[in-house]
Design a protein around this nucleic acid. Structure first.
Lengths: 354, 354
DNA sequence: AGTCATTGCACCATCGATTGTGCAAAAAAG
DNA sequence: CTTTTTTGCACAATCGATGGTGCAATGACT
């Protein structure tokens, strides 16, 4: 019985205890015993012994032998924002419900780091990999390909592997429309009054910018180049862009589109430097949903990307095994200001342990 | 070289190619070759071959043989809030900088799940484990103990293993003081006007409640029992508590302490059901920092827990190896309203890939 | 009773690395 | 030119599990 300090029991220990051979013990404990025609009584004996001694398989040994580990990886750029952390949360739940073991790692948007991290995961013989928001999906693809590792891209598409991404164009359209319509409640809107901050030269940003510009052209008749302010994915850079705009114009744009919640943090940094009241009348659209962001003191329209659907679709693709390098679009959702959506945490039971 | 589709190279492949024995190859590739008196020229030859063929060690095999894996685990209750996701972010960075491989998993505050997840980690021979916010730290401790796994508790203390936690009492004191002082700007404050929402019967909640009550007693002369509204860690329950209060009193308390950012999301859900203007004058203290939470349309004082210091201290404790089951306190920090702190993401470089 | 099929399990090679041990060849010492 | 020491490496056992193969015992059937 679970003696403290002792080494963990192995199939050899149980083999001695039960009088069966190690292979029999192994078969019983990994469930393949019916296939191997082990007597029910023998199986039960071994099972009981295993329970008594708190046996758990050494998964490294199993993985080494079978060259499968039961691990499913999720490669994230960063943890520290609601979009990716809630993706991690759903990923864990979905993978665990399939009896596999989720492993989440982040690579800080560094292409080299991305490849290295994936190499490491491969060294642990992970079975499948979700590549979310990779800066260089095709680079990662090459590494996976070489090792024969099944993988899908999430959020940012690659050209060599199947991808599941948000419909960024459509999301940007909805978002841009929403802020322009909202702005029109206070009178006519000129194209020069609507800006976009954030983003860089990745697929998601390009699509969002395209959607933004398309709507501006159709609703406002023009979309001046100057209204696009790419700042990369960095709060500090974004704050600087707002500051620069403010220095030049004495105010922020009447309404603007922020490329991600990370960039929206840049807006906060800017706001912190300036008096509260000055900006009560701005209208913001943010491509990403954050519950607290939704309740800022000015209207914030947000886009909630359906990471659950993306992960689920990714799992389905991996399961299907036929993997044309197609790109699947998942529809995001427009969230009006002051909206508190429920998230993955709401499915948790919250026991009080008295 | 790196031929696509081929199986990964092993030390045996390199042994044939180089004309050396597998053990020599192994020694060269894992760095122990000087100790084993391998000629520099031999080492270089093998190294070059390894590079050419893109050799990477099979870490499961290594782990099996040496019963150490290079993995360091972090067990989290949930990912989906800024406190824990930023903890994960720092954890990754710190562990990686020590040449080990971080593995983050969540257990949804379910004691049984916690133990199971840890069992799984143990089956992969992880070397060390950080147990953050565990509902049942001592239960997890027992599992670790049995397997001889070094571990520390973070955020919620256990009695059997060393723990590193926030000074919740002091944090709660600061926070309560801050909201009372802020409230006093609008006139005298009665004890019945200051509430606490959220928390359950865990060490952190108890300490925070203790700090809250101590300050109320010393600043306001009393702290009525009715002002403590424990709701567990669930947005939905918290929202219900606010709603109940509102139904009973026709308004929210003048100022209140919210036990965590998760509970603060409950406040959002309540707010979403009610007109904006009604609550412009509330004053909130939230035990946890969230950048967007800090800019809500009413004053929100927040407590930023120093998860970086906690992780660092935890690493130091594990490194020291002498592990009395002492509890180390880390000072948290009071964050005034409308403050955008920088986080772990700010250390990232943000390259634009043109 | 003899043949054949089925049941129930043991044996053993294998996955890819690590590490203690031993032994030639080369170098140093005498 | 021996003897001793050092250098450089090969050998083989081992970590814990898996799965193909083979063989004895049992039961079914003619």
């Amino acid at each position: 019985m679970t003696e403290v300090g002792k080494k963990k029991a192995t199939i050899y220990d149980l083999s001695v205890l039960s009088g069966s051979s190690p292979s029999t013990v192994s078969a019983v404990l990994n469930g393949s015993w019916r296939k191997r025609r082990i007597k029910e009584a023998t199986a039960k004996l071994i099972q009981d012994l295993a329970d008594q001694h708190g046996y758990t398989a050494n998964l490294q040994a199993r993985g080494l032998r079978s060259s499968r580990s039961g691990l499913v990886g999720l490669l994230l750029p960063v943890y520290d924002n609601r979009y990716f952390s809630s993706m991690a949360q759903t990923f864990e739940a979905l993978v665990r419900s399939r009896g596999q073991c989720p492993v989440v790692v982040s690579a800080c948007r560094d292409p080299e780091e991305e490849r290295q991290v994936v190499e490491t995961l491969i060294s642990y013989s992970i079975d499948e990999l979700f590549i979310a928001g990779a800066t260089d999906p095709d680079g990662v693809h090459a590494v996976c390909e070489k090792a024969g590792l099944r993988h899908v891209n999430i959020d940012l598409p690659g050209t060599k592997a199947p991808s599941v991404i948000s419909d960024n164009f459509e999301g940007a359209r909805m978002l841009t429309e929403a802020i322009i319509e909202h702005a029109r409640k206070d009178g006519p809107v000129a194209p020069e009054e609507i800006y976009l901050f954030g983003g860089r030269n990745d697929h998601a940003s390009r699509e969002r910018i395209r959607g933004f510009r398309a709507v501006k052209r159709s609703m406002l008749g023009a979309d001046p180049e100057a209204c696009i302010q790419p700042t990369g994915y960095s709060p500090a850079m974004t704050a600087r862009a707002f500051e620069a705009f403010y220095q030049a114009h004495g105010k922020l744009p009447r309404a603007f589109f922020v490329n991600s919640s990370i960039n929206l943090e840049g807006l906060l940094r800017f706001l912190a430097q300036h008096p509260h009241e000055t900006f009560a009348d701005i209208i913001v659209g943010c491509y990403d949903y954050d519950p607290f962001g939704s309740f800022l003191p000015f209207p914030v329209f947000m886009i909630r990307q359906d990471s659950e659907a993306m992960i689920a679709k990714g799992l389905a693709i991996l399961e299907a095994k036929r993997e044309p390098a197609a790109t699947h679009l998942v529809q995001p959702m427009l969230v009006p200001p002051r909206t508190a959506l429920s998230g993955p945490l709401d499915t948790l039971k919250d026991v009080d342990d008295g």
